[in-house]
Structure formats: C-alpha cells, structure tokens
C-alpha cells in the first residue's frame, strides 16, 4: 500500500514538474512585450485543432492570418470559409451565408474578444483589464498563461496559453481551455513579420 501511494504521488508530480513557474516573470514579460512592440505587421498560416472530449474526436481547420497596426484578418480556408476582420472599432464576420458588421463601441463583449485576440497573437500580454498573466517555463519554451478577468469572457474559456519561442520572443501556438474540458490549439506556421500587407486585406464594407 505504501509503495502504491509513492508510485501514485510520483505519477502526479512528474507532469507538474514538466512546467514550472518562471523564475523571473517580469523580465520575460518585458522581453515579450518589447518584441511585440516591434511587430508592425504579421502574416502566417494557421492550423486549428479543436478537441471535442464528449465525442472523442477532433475538428481541424486551416487558414491564414494577417495583422497590421491594430488591424487583424483571420481567415478560415478549409474545410469551411469564414472571415473575421478587426478594423478600428468595427468587426466583420463573413461567411458564405452572409456578413455581419459589429460596432465594438456598443458591443463591449466583442471589443474584449478583439482585444484578447490581438494581444494573444502579437504577444502583447500586459493588458491587465482583460486577463491575469502567469509565466511558465517548460522544456520547449515559455508559456504565458492568461486567465480572463471579465465574467463574460470566463464563460467562453477558462485560460488562454500562449506558447512563446524563447529566442524569437514570439507566439507560435495559442491554446484555449474551456470549462467543459475541451481545448482548441492554434498552431502558426510560415510566420512572416514586418512584411508588406495591403490595407485592402482589412477592408470592411458597410
């Protein structure tokens, strides 16, 4: 019995030891934010894997992302077409069945979603209005664990984990954790920083 308890304890402790709280989180956050401030534009491909625990299956989708000076275009290409654009105080949701333009001044929740998305993708993690930040270190790199502060956001996800390349100080993966146990992993590849991105990519036609 005593040996069983020791073995169980070791099994629980080992995965916890794989991620540990960062020794100097303020320095890490400063370095990440400094790198984020140097990003004026960004484009990449992404692969989104939604784990559906109840159905024991996954939903995989792919697309492209463009960012430029506070504007964002998030476009799903497969297996469905869907476009999400943030441009100033307007958010566009566009699908084959129609479009919807939302004013974030009047719809605060969308404003929060837009802020969190922008912050997550660029690595600007000092927005204490939207989330609390915990820095973790693991073998593969750094993790910024963001916990939503606002109740409206907490109903959608419990935590956002940004997996950060410790050399480039840039976000390579975003992990969304939900209260039901499901997770969404977004992996960014072919990341190009500070390249020319045409403004028309972010155009919202009212």
């Amino acid at each position: 019995m005593k040996h069983l308890l020791i073995i169980l304890f070791a099994m629980v402790s080992f995965p916890l030891a794989a991620q540990r709280q960062a020794g100097n989180p303020e320095v890490m956050i400063e370095e990440i934010c400094e790198a984020a401030s140097e990003i004026h534009s960004l484009q990449c491909k992404f692969r989104q894997t939604k784990n559906l625990s109840l159905l024991a299956t996954e939903m995989v989708s792919t697309g492209r992302m463009y960012y430029k000076e506070g504007m964002l275009r998030w476009e799903y290409l497969s297996p469905y077409r869907y476009i999400f654009i943030i441009n100033g105080e307007s958010v566009l949701l566009d699908s084959p069945s129609g479009s919807n333009v939302i004013d974030t001044k009047t719809n605060k929740m969308f404003g929060s979603i837009a802020n969190i998305m922008m912050s997550s993708l660029t690595g600007n993690i000092t927005d204490t209005e939207e989330f609390d930040t915990l820095m973790l270190e693991e073998k593969e790199g750094w993790i910024a664990e963001l916990t939503p502060v606002k109740k409206e956001m907490q109903q959608f996800f419990t935590k956002v984990r940004l997996h950060i390349n410790p050399v480039e100080k840039s976000v390579e993966k975003v992990e969304l954790l939900e209260k039901g146990g499901d997770t969404t992993l977004i992996e960014m590849t072919e990341i190009e920083k500070n390249v020319s991105v045409d403004d028309s990519v972010f155009e919202i036609l009212h």
């Binding site: 939604k50 109840l54 159905l55 939903m59 989708s61 969304l176 939900e178 499901d182």
Partner: peptide, 10 residues
C-alpha cells in the same frame, strides 16, 4: 453532438 463556433468555442 457538439455545437461550436468557427473559432472552436463551444
């Protein structure tokens, strides 16, 4: 079944 939005939010 599960119903999610395009971003994967349940």
């Amino acid at each position: 079944l599960s119903v999610i939005n395009q971003f994967g939010i349940k």
